[in-house]
């Protein structure tokens, strides 16, 4: 009995506030725009059963998504932005993680904390901080003009470049931590063994260090890619009008156009795109855990 309550409470909560809402999104995405205009009351007429639901299926919203090139352009551009910035985060994050893992033992907790600290501070504030740096009269341009590298301010804010910077900056801890965890576990004598067996420092790095931190790299990349794909705050604060990201499109579809069925359809497709990386990520984590055991 007690066990039943223990399971039922969180179960019912999640069913009601996670699964059911999601089913509603699915249903609305398949319903007609006309009846879905607010105030909208979804009809949960389960008596009519699944047949009625199926017969009312309307793929119009999805057709709309395919016909209007705004949407698939937005998906493609989100995908491209998320992939590029994941790669950039890896390039920036790996040397930091590597440096941390090589640092003297007594520094490591402090370095760890320095990486985690930004994670605890507001995401919004960290994105906002870049607004002042990247603007035309911002510090970056002031600095570049002072060094004489450029003669007039570069337009960085409100471009896709600013979005890359924002994503790399805010998601950097997610990349560093798993790689650091993998590198820290690594036995130093492995590198020595590789060098002893004739590797140069560089080839020892490529042949031993990188393969052993593969799990961390994969985990880090997924942890950056998955949220970057649906990102809304960064493109809307740092990106320009030409920066298309699907999170932003969904937001505008919902709040500005108030077209709920289309917004729902956008959400469903976004989720379908994310299912593959999410499943792959889960696999990777399981493999890592089994490797530890």
């Amino acid at each position: 009995m007690r066990r039943f309550v223990l399971i039922a409470v969180p179960y019912v909560w999640l069913l009601a506030l996670f699964l059911v809402p999601f089913v509603i999104v699915l249903k609305i995405s398949l319903s007609d725009a006309a009846i879905a205009r607010p105030p909208y009351v979804p009809q949960f007429d389960w008596v009519e059963g699944i047949w009625a639901f199926l017969s009312q299926l309307d793929f119009e919203n999805f057709t709309w998504l395919i016909e209007d090139d705004l949407y698939w352009k937005a998906y493609l551009s989100s995908l491209q932005i998320a992939l590029t910035s994941t790669l950039l985060t890896l390039i920036v994050g790996y040397p930091i993680a590597y440096g941390m893992a090589r640092a003297p033992q007594e520094w490591r907790p402090t370095l760890m904390m320095l990486v985690i600290l930004p994670f605890w501070t507001s995401f919004l504030i960290r994105v906002y901080a870049w607004k002042g740096i990247l603007s035309n009269e911002g510090f970056l341009n002031q600095f570049l003009m002072w060094t004489g590298l450029v003669s007039e301010p570069l337009q960085i804010l409100n471009t896709t470049t600013a979005v890359y910077i924002g994503i790399v900056y805010t998601y950097l801890p997610f990349m560093i931590l798993p790689i650091y965890a993998a590198l820290e576990r690594m036995d130093d004598s492995l590198i020595e063994a590789a060098e002893d067996l004739g590797c140069s420092r560089m080839s020892a790095f490529w042949l031993v260090t990188i393969p052993l931190s593969k799990g961390g790299i994969i985990a880090g990349c997924f942890l950056v890619f998955i949220p970057a794909m649906g990102e809304f705050v960064i493109p809307s604060l740092l990106g320009g009008s030409d920066t298309l990201m699907i999170g932003k499109v969904l937001w505008e579809e919902f709040f500005s156009n108030r077209d709920w069925p289309v917004a729902s359809a956008v959400a469903v497709i976004l989720l379908l795109i994310l299912v593959v990386p999410i499943v792959l990520f889960q696999r990777n984590q399981q493999k890592e855990q089994e490797g530890d055991a």
Partner: peptide, 28 residues
């Protein structure tokens, strides 16, 4: 399996989707 799926899914669910779906529920 469903239970553990519902525990892990929100961690990777884009916030816009979570927000949208909850709003539709509350209105519903």
């Amino acid at each position: 399996t469903l239970f553990s799926g519902m525990i892990y899914a929100p961690l990777v669910m884009p916030e816009v989707i979570t927000g949208l779906s909850l709003l539709l529920l509350f209105i519903g």
